[in-house]
């Protein structure tokens, strides 16, 4: 299903300390990026709660959840919203371990790093919970940090649900349906295809370099090579743009973008939209009335 994009480490291009070469590391990262997109499309095609929704309804409802998350201030309600993302993921047959790992790696980890100093007396004075001198953890500091990390995790979770349960073509249809100009939608569609093409090109460049190298190379050599390859990609991008336009003209392009196929909402979509609105309102109501600041 997924092409052979995972590369095994080759001892010949490892440094004395066992580190992989720059070319290998970059090729692996690029391969992972391509594989992620293909896996997302595969996951979005499997039956599940979020996958069954009209993409417009899904987009609007997730946006409502993201806005509600930004408006909520109490930790229990934020935790509830975070658990809601997990419940939606489970109902959509999204692998929960991967979901949690992705949310944590993209948002939670950096959120925690950023929030950690705010938990200390250095930034937030208050009653000390863990005495560590100027870096003592204070009660209000811990609350501020926990609130930030939980909100970031919930926001990332809702965002990831859109990414993982919506095919790119459906997302474009939804954007088109909610009023985004056709020209922008067409550019987005073409960009995604070109990104995949350029990622493959750049991955192959790195693999080709990897296969020719007998050592990991010096920092100076590697930097020079990377910059030269970036310049090549820039030139190729500009040239490909002309080629793509020529191909469009050859196929009869007259300046108008064809509309994507129309979407149809079902009763279940309206039900979902109403339920989402009710859950958001409930979360805000509990936040304001049960846990006032």
């Amino acid at each position: 299903m997924i092409p052979a994009l995972q590369h095994m480490g080759d001892p010949a291009t490892r440094s004395r300390r066992g580190h992989r070469s720059l070319a290998r590391r970059t090729a692996d990262a690029l391969g992972r990026a391509v594989a992620d997109v293909l896996e997302n499309d595969e996951l979005a095609s499997t039956p599940g709660l979020m996958q069954s929704l009209d993409p417009r309804v899904k987009l609007v409802s997730i946006l409502a959840f993201a806005v509600a998350t930004s408006l909520v201030h109490s930790l229990p309600v934020l935790l509830g919203l975070t658990l809601t993302t997990v419940a939606f993921a489970a109902a959509s047959k999204v692998p929960l371990a991967s979901f949690a790992a992705k949310v944590w790696s993209t948002a939670g980890f950096f959120g925690a790093l950023l929030a950690a100093p705010a938990a200390t007396a250095w930034i937030t004075p208050g009653p000390v919970l863990v005495p560590l001198g100027p870096l003592s953890v204070t009660a209000p500091g811990l609350l501020i940090a926990a609130r930030l990390v939980t909100r970031v995790a919930a926001g990332a979770g809702f965002g990831l649900l859109v990414v993982w349960t919506t095919r790119w073509t459906d997302l474009l249809r939804a954007l088109s349906a909610v009023g985004v100009p056709e020209l922008v939608v067409a550019t987005l569609a073409m960009t995604q295809k070109q990104i995949m093409s350029l990622l493959r090109t750049v991955e192959n460049m790195h693999l080709a370099r990897e296969s020719r190298m007998l050592s990991v190379g010096t920092v100076h050599e590697n930097r020079g090579w990377v910059v030269e390859r970036m310049a090549f990609v820039a030139r190729r991008s500009m040239k490909t743009a002309d080629d793509v336009y020529d191909a469009m003209l050859a196929r009869g392009f007259d300046g108008h973008m064809p509309s994507l196929a129309a979407l149809r909402t079902r009763a279940a979509d309206w039900g979902w939209l109403l339920t989402s609105a009710a859950v958001c309102a409930l979360a805000l109501g509990i936040d304001r009335m049960v846990f006032p600041l």
Binding site: A186, T187, M190, T191, Q194, I195, S197, T240
Partner: peptide, 9 residues
């Protein structure tokens, strides 16, 4: 369109 798409890519 293709120029913007390629530049974005």
């Amino acid at each position: 369109v293709p120029l913007m798409a390629l530049a974005a890519a």
